[in-house]
Simulated assay, not measured.
Amino acid sequence: MSPKQQRGAQTAERLLDAALQVYAESGEQGVTVSALTKASGVSLGSLYHHFGSVDGLMRALLLRWLGRLLGELAGGVERSRTAKGAVRTLVRAYLTFIQEHPDASRLLHSSYADRVGMAQAAQLRDAQEARLSPLTAWVRRHTESGEIAPLAAPMVEALVMGPIVATARRWLSGIDDADLDQAAHVLPERIWRSISP
C-alpha cells in the first residue's frame, strides 16, 4: 500500500470512528456533516471522497460492525463440535459482543439499521457472504445429519436468532428486566428445543 493509500485508509478509519462516536452521543439525527467533520478533524471533501455522503458513511459503519458481529458468531460456530454446543456459543458470543461494544450494538439494532436492512437486504447479504457462509453451512450440515429438525434455513435462523436479538434489544434499550447472565443461561436450552428434531 502506497503512503497515499495509507493516508486515505487512515482518513476513512477516522471518519468511521467519528461517526460511531457522534451516533452514540447524539443519535441518528445528530449525525451531520458538521458534527462528523468536527469530531474527526477531516474535511468535508474527504468525507465525500471516501463515502459519497453521510448516508454512505453510515452504511459503511453499519457494514463494519455487522461484519465484526458475524465474524464472532461464525468463529464460534466453526469451533463448536455439536449443533447444541454451537447454539450455546452463538448465544454467549452475541451477548458478549453487545456488552463489549454497546455503542456499535445500538447502531446494529437501531431503526436506521432496520431501514437499511429492509431496503438493501440483498446487498447487505452479498457484502457479508464470507461471514454468513459458515453459519449457512452449519445449518445445512446439521440439518442433513438430522441433528437439527428438517426446517428451511430461514426458519432455523429465526428460531435461533430471534430470542437472542430480542434480548439484546431489551438490554440495549436499558429495560431493567433484561438480565444477560440469565439469558446466557436460559436461552441456549430453549432455543435448542425449538430446532432439535
Rank of each mutant, 00 (worst) to 15 (best):
G56N: 04
S133W: 12
D176A: 15
I175S: 15
A113H: 08
R59E: 03
E72F: 07
A12F: 05
S2W: 07
M155T: 15
A35K: 06
L57F: 01
S173I: 11
S133T: 14
A39G: 03
F97V: 11
S133N: 11
S53L: 02
P150L: 10
V186G: 07
L47P: 04
E144T: 13
L63N: 13
E144F: 08
D177Q: 15
T82Y: 00
A121C: 10
A168T: 02
A35F: 01
S2I: 10
A127W: 10
Q21V: 04
R68T: 12
G8H: 10
D176I: 15
W138T: 00
R68H: 14
T37M: 05
L57W: 00
A60D: 12
T11L: 02
W65D: 11
S196L: 07
A184I: 02
G67S: 09
G117R: 09
A137L: 14
L159Q: 04
Q10K: 14
P3I: 02
S194R: 12
R59C: 04
S111T: 15
L151Q: 10
A24K: 00
Y48L: 11
L36P: 02
F97D: 12
L107R: 02
V33M: 11
L95S: 06
R169Q: 14
A178G: 06
L15G: 01
A93G: 11
L36W: 00
E129P: 08
E144W: 08
G45Y: 03
L124Q: 02
D55V: 03
Q99Y: 12
L95K: 09
L95V: 06
G75M: 06
A18D: 06
L180Y: 04
H142M: 02
S80D: 10
G162K: 03
Q29C: 05
G67H: 05
A166L: 13
R141C: 05
H142Q: 05
A122I: 12
Y94R: 05
L15F: 01
R140E: 12
E72I: 05
R68S: 13
R170H: 03
V165F: 07
A127S: 14
Q120A: 13
L159C: 06
L108W: 10
I148S: 02
A153V: 07
R115P: 06
A104R: 06
Q99W: 13
T32H: 05
A137Y: 04
V160K: 00
A12C: 04
G162S: 12
P154M: 08
R7P: 00
A158L: 13
D17C: 02
G117N: 12
P163N: 09
E157S: 09
L73T: 08
R59Q: 08
P163L: 06
L15I: 03
G76A: 06
V22Y: 01
L44V: 14
T96S: 11
L73W: 03
L180P: 07
G8N: 14
S80L: 08
A74K: 03
R79F: 09
A60H: 09
W192M: 12
L57I: 05
R141E: 14
G76R: 01
P134H: 05
M1W: 07
I195Q: 04
E189Q: 13
W65P: 09
I148A: 00
Q10Y: 03
A121E: 09
R68M: 13
S110R: 09
A183F: 05
G85P: 03
L172R: 13
S53R: 08
E157V: 06
L180Q: 06
Y48S: 07
